[in-house]
């Protein structure tokens, strides 16, 4: 494998990235967070391993928004494995390779074991947390995209809409400009980008 990452999901939506092994893995997780689609999202929704051995030339095209930037980032084969404990779905393990090709049976079996170990590890990290608090290791090590939620709060005031709608606007803006929602959020927080309530458009700020 070229890289791996562990993504937390809640319901059908990505919530954060516990760890990534390199920049490409990080982009793969950020893209899924921005777009709400990709191998991890499908692995959790479908409750099974999702395998794409040739991302650039897939047998069945899927993930129309996710695939082009993921390929540009350097992913040629991509695999998502659900992080489950019994019926509890925590998120997904994502693996990628910089060349196309399927997983061998051994690699597939290893990935299932790794996903199971990772699921227990996540539970372990939260198990001893104070009530209402995130586990210390998760708090420090996981990218929960807090800046995106801060920016949602700002945009909700700029546009006079709910924070939920503001997050949708941030994601749409990122998608339209082919960027990551985390990057758009950073510009909103710094004041370089503002949403205009008159026409809803994002413009360069101060």
């Amino acid at each position: 494998m070229s890289g791996a990452g562990i993504m937390l999901m809640s319901g059908d939506l990505p919530k954060g990235s516990v760890c990534t092994t390199n920049g490409v893995s990080e982009i793969i997780e950020q893209l899924q967070y921005t777009l709400g689609e990709g191998p991890c999202v499908d692995a959790v929704r479908q409750h099974r391993a999702v395998l794409e051995p040739d991302l650039a030339r897939p047998a069945t095209p899927r993930w129309v928004a996710f695939t082009p930037p993921a390929v540009r980032a350097g992913a040629r084969a991509i695999f998502g494995f659900p992080l489950d404990v019994g019926a509890v779905r925590l998120g997904a393990l994502n693996l990628y390779r910089d060349r196309p090709g399927p997983l061998t049976d051994d690699q597939h079996a290893d990935a299932l074991v790794l996903a199971s170990v990772a699921a227990r590890a996540v539970i372990g990290m939260q198990a001893d947390a104070d009530p209402g608090a995130l586990g210390a290791e998760l708090e420090v090590g996981t990218n929960f995209q807090f800046a995106v939620h801060q920016a949602s709060g700002m945009v909700s005031v700029q546009l006079g809409v709910s924070v939920g709608q503001a997050l949708v606007r941030l994601r749409a803006n990122a998608f339209a400009d082919d960027r990551l929602v985390a990057d758009v959020a950073r510009e909103v927080i710094s004041g370089r980008l503002r949403f205009d309530h008159r026409d809803g458009q994002a413009r360069s700020g101060r």
Partner: peptide
């Protein structure tokens, strides 16, 4: 699995609290 369910519910609850705080910070800042 039952224990995992409880822990996962706590995780989501804690995360949702944190998200509300970050959103409120953004609203207050703006």
């Amino acid at each position: 699995a039952l224990e995992a369910q409880v822990v996962n519910d706590q995780l989501n609850h804690a995360l949702n609290s944190r998200i509300a705080i970050e959103q409120a910070k953004g609203m207050i800042a703006e």
